[in-house]
Amino acid sequence: MKKNILIILSVIISNCVFAQHENHQPKADTAKTASKPKSPKMTAMAMVGNNHVHIEYGSPSVRGRSIWNGLVAYNQVWATGAHHATWIDFSQDVMIQGKHIPKGKYGFFTIPNKKTWTIILSKTWDMHLADDYKEENDILRLTVKPIKNKKITEALTYDVISTNGKKGKIKMTWEYLTVSFDFENM
Rank of each mutant, 00 (worst) to 15 (best):
W87V: 07
T116F: 15
A73K: 12
N137R: 05
L140H: 09
K105Y: 12
I120H: 07
Y106N: 02
G70D: 06
E56K: 02
A130F: 07
D132S: 15
K134N: 11
M95W: 15
G104I: 04
D131V: 06
G107W: 03
K115N: 11
K99L: 10
A155G: 08
W78A: 03
L140E: 05
N75V: 11
P60T: 01
G107E: 01
R141E: 10
K103C: 06
A82R: 03
A85L: 13
I120T: 05
A155C: 09
H84E: 10
G81Q: 01
Y106Q: 01
A155R: 09
K114W: 12
R65S: 08
R141P: 04
E56Y: 07
T157M: 12
D126K: 13
A79T: 05
A130R: 00
G98F: 14
P60Q: 00
T80S: 12
A85H: 06
A155M: 11
T116V: 15
V62S: 02
D126A: 14
Q76F: 14
P112S: 05
P112V: 04
T157V: 10
I119Y: 09
S91V: 00
T116H: 14
N137Q: 12
V160S: 02
D159G: 06
N75E: 13
K150C: 07
V94G: 01
H84C: 09
A130I: 00
W68C: 04
H100W: 15
N75T: 09
G81S: 03
I88L: 05
A73I: 13
P146M: 05
T80H: 03
D132E: 14
T124Y: 12
I96P: 02
T80N: 10
R63D: 08
T124Q: 14
P60M: 03
I88M: 03
A73V: 14
T86P: 07
T118C: 09
E154F: 06
I96V: 14
Q97A: 12
K99D: 07
V77R: 00
I67R: 08
D138S: 08
W125V: 04
P102R: 12
V144A: 08
D126V: 13
A82S: 10
F109Q: 00
K99E: 08
E56Q: 10
N149Q: 11
M127C: 04
G107Y: 01
E135L: 13
S66Q: 14
F109E: 01
A85M: 07
D159T: 07
D131C: 10
G98P: 09
Y158K: 01
Q76V: 14
F109I: 00
Y74S: 04
K151V: 15
P102S: 14
W78I: 00
K114C: 09
H83Q: 12
Q97N: 13
K115M: 12
L121Q: 01
L71D: 13
M127N: 02
L140T: 02
N149Y: 13
A155I: 08
K99A: 10
H128L: 14
V94M: 05
D93H: 11
E56P: 04
G104F: 08
M127K: 03
W117F: 15
S61N: 04
K115H: 10
T110I: 12
K150V: 10
